[in-house]
Nucleic acid binder design. Structure first.
Lengths: 321, 321
DNA sequence: GGAGTTATACTCATAGCGAGCATAAGGAAA
DNA sequence: TTTCCTTATGCTCGCTATGAGTATAACTCC
């Protein structure tokens, strides 16, 4: 049917002119070990695993898996596309550089040391994002004063007010609460305010001020921020946390993992209630003699849930404790 | 700092080998007019506006805008990236074809007729998705029997059970409710079951059965499904509906728009409550003499909300009426 | 055996939301 | 003009989800 129309439209899709485009695949691979959320890095923790899309790759995902395994020896489980960026190629010739970024979740098992790659806490890159032990000092001591100064420095009062509003919203000032999902917004504000190294890099920055948070090459830290934001959002409505857990675990371990990701604490009893009433887990029968205190039952994720509901609603109880 | 490490990592990002990659930009442009959600199409409604990424484009977004305006004369407002796909190029030569798809929202104003492009109700492509007037007959009459037959036809009982589960979840059988967000899952199931034309296209399909839903070239219908799913999810927590509304509107018009998108009806009083208590709108002062019945107040979207909260929480009251 | 620590079970109060009833204010038909 | 139909708008009711706190239980370590 309508073959003519389809035929006529073909040229729009598979166009004949071949372009000069480079495509990179970039992976943010996350694991949580000992209550620390970590990201897989290469090049002395300055870059995310990545590599060009090649003809041998059957798909974007398989290409990504190949690169990560080649560079780090780590196989990937759950994978999800994050975002695609484009830049005029930095090499100067007329190329367009496309970066397709992915979020991957695994467990950090074979902790083999390597000079080139390794796991790094994501709070090394974003120290202002960890609110598990209260507001991190870097916020009130360094970032907030500078952000507010930056807002005040704006050309006209309107822009100043606008900046101030955005800062308040992103960082939970005034009547706003701290919203752990706004990782990217915060990073971008800090970038605008030249409070991250990437923003002043290469620029003639008069007095090099101490800037918190470890930088990365190119826009890798921005991609990491995107991944964290996505993950913090996603754990609230999809049972992805389990990708990060060992086969059996206690509810406290599960809670610590969630807290590590969210960067905030949750109410213990309510957390249990939520997890249990959603039938996400089942008891293994064993118990675990904890570090101290009453032994905890061990649970495993109910694989059945994937088949049954395919997508359940995992919810995170929030708390300001 | 760490300039050496950064330098060393450079080659991983801007790699020197240039690849043979084509990148297309594909747009799903949505408007809602007279209670019908419509998508901008070209080539006799068989394709989405699209075109190759070119060197002249400053960014992916601007490239996309350029293509849509060139092909349809329609300027775009809100834009959001959807997904990036890759296929081995169909032309056979060793190229990788990348498609970067976007969702755009506008209003269908200049309804200029054109032979090549136009607006088409998205329910022409997905007749099973419109539940505003109850369950569409195509579901019980045609699709469900065939889907269940397909599930039953599986090789082994396990696969059969699995298929049957997925169908039940996606289409709201058994104790599942109809979930309007699962547009893509439903399309993919129908594709797997060879119940959409794209799945049997080119294949030697013995008896050409009548298959519901208008097809599109390549995987454009799949992209449209992705867009609809995204939009149906998004209207529930972001005030994006307003991109589709005229400057002033009644609450019923707003409700009809939401219903058109969601493909289901909402409880009128609760809808008003939700909209009003969120301070998303303000009265213009005028009233509108409706088609029949008491005149309604007209409202406008509170732009302030964007600055104030940047991201508010718009919520859709669900209903099975 | 007592202190400290974690596990686990309940209770309570409230906000949000699905539903429905009731009234107001127009136009069209009788 | 009266009645009826239709949409607009206000308000109440009841349930559920969830934030928060209290009370035990079951171990380990002194």
């Amino acid at each position: 049917m309508q073959d003519k129309a389809i035929q006529a439209a073909k040229h729009l899709v598979g166009n004949s002119r071949s372009q000069i485009v480079n495509a990179d695949l970039i992976a943010v691979v996350i694991a949580v070990t000992n209550g620390e959320p970590r990201s897989l890095t290469i090049e002395q923790a300055h870059a995310l695993p990545s590599g060009p899309l090649e003809l041998g790759h059957r798909s974007l995902q398989s290409g990504l898996r190949a690169w990560v395994e080649r560079q780090t020896g780590h196989p990937l489980g759950y994978i999800e596309q994050l975002y695609t960026f484009a830049d005029r190629d930095r090499t100067g010739d007329e190329h367009v550089q496309i970066s397709i970024s992915y979020l991957g979740l695994t467990r950090e098992e074979q902790a083999e040391r390597s000079a080139t790659h390794g796991w790094r806490s994501w709070y090394d890159y974003f120290p202002w994002e960890d609110h598990r032990a209260g507001v991190p000092p870097v916020l009130p001591d360094i970032l907030m004063p500078r952000l507010l100064a930056w807002a005040g420095d704006a050309q006209d009062p309107n822009m100043s007010h606008d900046r101030r509003q955005r800062v308040a919203y992103a960082f939970g000032l005034d009547d706003h609460d701290w919203n752990e999902e706004l990782v990217l917004q915060r990073y971008e504000l800090l970038y605008e305010a030249a409070l991250v190294e990437e923003a002043v890099r290469g620029r003639d920055n008069g007095s090099p001020r101490s800037i918190p948070g470890r930088p990365m090459i190119a826009d890798h830290r921005r991609i990491l921020a995107t991944a964290i934001a996505r993950l913090r959002t996603k754990i609230k409505y999809r049972p992805v946390v389990f990708e990060l857990m060992p086969p059996a675990f206690t509810l406290l371990q599960l809670q610590r993992t969630v807290e590590a990701l969210a960067g905030r604490l949750v109410h213990k009893q309510n957390f249990r209630r939520l997890i249990e009433q959603q039938d996400l887990v089942e008891e293994t029968g064993e118990t675990m003699s904890a570090t101290g205190g009453r032994p905890a039952k061990r649970f495993r994720f109910r694989q059945a849930i994937l088949a049954e509901r395919a997508v359940a609603g995992t919810k995170l109880p929030l708390s300001r404790t």
